[in-house]
Design a protein around this nucleic acid. Structure first.
Length: 165
DNA sequence: GCCAACGTTGGC
DNA sequence: GCCAACGTTGGC
C-alpha cells in the first residue's frame, strides 16, 4: 500500500490495531496507570513501517480483538508517544526476542497507546462484513493478517457509529 | 484443530 | 536474485 509520509501536523491518520484478548485486553489497558501501555512485540515489517513512519501522536486507533470466539472492535485508543525502539527485541527472556536486534541497531519499534473510549456496543467482525459501507477496508480483504493497518477516516467513523459512539 | 494466505529464510 | 520450505496469523 502506498502512503505518503505524514509530515504535516494536522494530517491525522486513523488505525486499527489487533490484540488477542487473552494476551492483552482492552480492560487490561484501562486498568493501567494513566490507562497507557507500550505497544510492543510487533514483529512484522509492514506493521512496523506503518507504526514507525506514519503513526503520529494524537492519532486514533480502533482496538480489535483477534483469535477469539467473536473477533471485533471493542473501543478506541489514542497514540500518546511516537515510535521508539522496542527493548523486548533484545531481551533474551522476552517471547519477542530477536537476536538480530540490538540497542545500537534496533530492528523493532513500538508506540505508546492510551485507552480513550469503550464502545457501548461491541462491533463484531461479522457485522463489519455485513456493512456495505465497510466493504473496502483492509480488515475484510482476503488474507490480510496485518496487526496494524491504516483505516479511512470515514470507515473509522462508521465503525464508531456502529459501536454506539 | 484445520488450513488458506502470505511473510521470511536460506540454499543455490 | 530465485524460489521451495517453513513458520505464523487468524477466521472458522
Amino acid at each position: 500500500m502506498k502512503m505518503p509520509k505524514n509530515t504535516t501536523k494536522d494530517a491525522r491518520l486513523y488505525w486499527l490495531i489487533k490484540s488477542e484478548p487473552h494476551t492483552f485486553s482492552f480492560e487490561d489497558l484501562k486498568s493501567l496507570p494513566k490507562k497507557i501501555s507500550t505497544w510492543d512485540g510487533v514483529r512484522n515489517y509492514q506493521a512496523r513501517n506503518f507504526m514507525r513512519d506514519h503513526m503520529r501522536k494524537g492519532d486514533l486507533a480502533l482496538f480489535y480483538y483477534s483469535s477469539c470466539p467473536k473477533p471485533g472492535v471493542i473501543g478506541v485508543v489514542r497514540i500518546t508517544k511516537e515510535s521508539y525502539p522496542d527493548p523486548t527485541s533484545w531481551d533474551p527472556k522476552s517471547p519477542y526476542f530477536d537476536p538480530k536486534s540490538a540497542p545500537s541497531s534496533p530492528r523493532w519499534f513500538m508506540v505508546d497507546i492510551q485507552w480513550k473510549e469503550g464502545f457501548p456496543k461491541y462491533v463484531a467482525l461479522e457485522a463489519i462484513k455485513k456493512n456495505n459501507k465497510l466493504s473496502g477496508i483492509k480488515l475484510v480483504q482476503k488474507g490480510n493478517r496485518l496487526s496494524i493497518m491504516p483505516i479511512e477516516k470515514e470507515a473509522f467513523a462508521e465503525i464508531c457509529r456502529m459501536g454506539g459512539l
